[in-house]
């Protein structure tokens, strides 16, 4: 099923792997535009690696690039966008803040949708860090743990079980 992303054509099926990163970008347009900017940058880079030849993918990537260029103009003067090393720290701090919130809820035995989403979003933002270079071993571990926890707790709640 095609996913509606405002301002973009229907998501080509090849781009399913970046669907959640694009959704995270939209969710952060107002909350944290720097995070939104780098989520889109990750999506376009990853999308170009997946398929930049087929007409539907080229059309999608071109529109996404338009959005990114507009966003960069709007964020002119923001050093997290002007300097990628600052952007790297910004996105990493944001991802770890979400991770620590979800982890704290988990360790306190408070299982709910918001903490599942925080674990999952932190894993997506750790993916985004790859635009700045290879992930550190610590970030790789955090990403793996966050993704596993999000899936595990989601399944437990769905099945009426208490996560261990």
């Amino acid at each position: 099923m095609a996913t509606a992303l405002p301002g973009l054509p229907s998501l080509p099926p090849q781009f399913k792997p970046i669907q959640h990163h694009l959704r995270t970008a939209q969710e952060h347009d107002k909350r944290d535009p720097v995070v939104a900017y780098y989520c889109r940058l990750y999506s376009i880079q990853t999308g170009m690696k997946i398929d930049s030849k087929s007409p539907e993918c080229r059309k999608f990537l071109s529109k996404l690039m338009d959005q990114l260029e507009t966003l960069k103009k709007q964020l002119a003067g923001n050093e997290s966008v002007a300097q990628e090393v600052v952007g790297n720290a910004h996105v990493e701090n944001y991802a770890l803040k979400l991770f620590l919130y979800a982890d704290s809820e988990d360790r306190s035995g408070r299982f709910h949708k918001n903490m599942i989403k925080s674990f999952y979003t932190s894993s997506l933002l750790l993916d985004v860090l790859s635009v700045f270079g290879e992930l550190t071993e610590e970030n790789l571990q955090h990403r793996k743990y966050a993704r596993w926890k999000a899936t595990y707790i989601h399944n437990c709640l769905k099945n009426g079980e208490t996560p261990q």
């Binding site: 940058l41 880079q45 930049s52 030849k53 080229r58 690039m65």
Partner: peptide
């Protein structure tokens, strides 16, 4: 016709790469 459309696709692909490089101040 096949090689023409391949050439067009390649040009558009290059254009995307160039726009991405400009965006990231890598040109």
């Amino acid at each position: 016709t096949g090689s023409l459309s391949a050439s067009v696709a390649s040009t558009e692909q290059d254009e995307l790469s160039q726009r991405l490089a400009r965006l990231r101040d890598q040109v």
